[in-house]
Design a protein around this nucleic acid. Sequence first.
DNA 1: CCTACCGATCGGTAGG
DNA 2: CCTACCGATCGGTAGG
Lengths: 212, 212
Amino acid sequence: MTAAAIDTPKRPRGRPRKTLDERDEGNRRLELVKAAARLFRRKGFDATSTRDIAAAVGMHSGSPFYHFKSKGDLLYAVMEQGMQWALDRQAKVLADEEPAAEQLRRLIRSHFDTLHGPGRDFIPVMLYESRSLTTRQRNGIADLQRQYEAAWVPVLKALSRSGQLRTDASLARLLIFGALNWSVQWFDAKKSASLDKITDAAMALFIREDLQ
Amino acid sequence: MTAAAIDTPKRPRGRPRKTLDERDEGNRRLELVKAAARLFRRKGFDATSTRDIAAAVGMHSGSPFYHFKSKGDLLYAVMEQGMQWALDRQAKVLADEEPAAEQLRRLIRSHFDTLHGPGRDFIPVMLYESRSLTTRQRNGIADLQRQYEAAWVPVLKALSRSGQLRTDASLARLLIFGALNWSVQWFDAKKSASLDKITDAAMALFIREDLQ
DNA sequence: CCTACCGATCGGTAGG
DNA sequence: CCTACCGATCGGTAGG
């Protein structure tokens, strides 16, 4: 903290008002990320051209490179944004003290919401296009994923201790995430069972009733 | 059966000896499929050029198109070959009459073998690159997948009836396949537990002891 | 953010 | 299966 910082005159409370230009820049950038997420999910990263993305937001072919240094940076932005939202949703769900089984149910339901809620292309892109990241980028995403998984570990350990889960917590986590994540291959909001029902099915598959 | 076929003079026993040309063509074709499987898995379909594949088997850039009409046909050949081998392995494992739980264990173990046995890039490619198939090709692969899943359905239904599986068989199949297939993302023959151990973990996660 | 453009790469082909 | 090649597309950039 420098003296200059201390002496800074008080600003009005709340988030500082952005200039019109700044606000537009932020919006355009987010528009690009959203359009990229949708296209990367539908066609894959390699099969999506930066021209496709530009056209989707009404820009000309070179303009995305004003906002992002490279196509790969745009991919990274999609994944980072997706993980940030997923972490936010997950944090909201874990507020109270509850039995471990109920906590797991909430985590699973929130995870399905992250995967299949309306407009949620970001995490599927992350799950299927990580190969196209640089090593540095992959490490950045891996950090966010570790944060996300950290909420699951104590819950699974508790269930393992109580006998409601009959598998070593670490392998259980991998297998359970697999079962959930794989749903991006088959879940169809119009045809599949509801996310609540699928959450019930997953719980019934993995967890035994309380054995007291 | 035509008269000509009936009258065909006896040939020597065993597989008919191919001419040198035929043998070479078959071998070269399979070489291409194997090299394509490895590259498609490592770099993805779009990021692999037909030149990469040609170089991997010591051909020049245009030559793969002597064996395959298009890059897409080569992708289809990889997936079809992978499914054929997977069906063969699965059929061998289901010979005897056994309790449903033991049958499921064998199916799971065979599935892990199909996913992770040495040189088994074919099925991972199928799981992750289906988007690049034409509709007709996708239908062809879907047929083979239905054959493959057909062996699992009665086993899961039996376990559901006996109470060893507490989930509707059809949702259970999707979740279980997810848990198994997702292992292509994390399994590492050098670092992970053995396939036998992971099979045990999966069984313990999904299946309750016999309740008699 | 647009205009105009470049160098590289790609799938595929004709002709042998 | 090789040689030589084509048209198309792509990520990215300079200059405004």
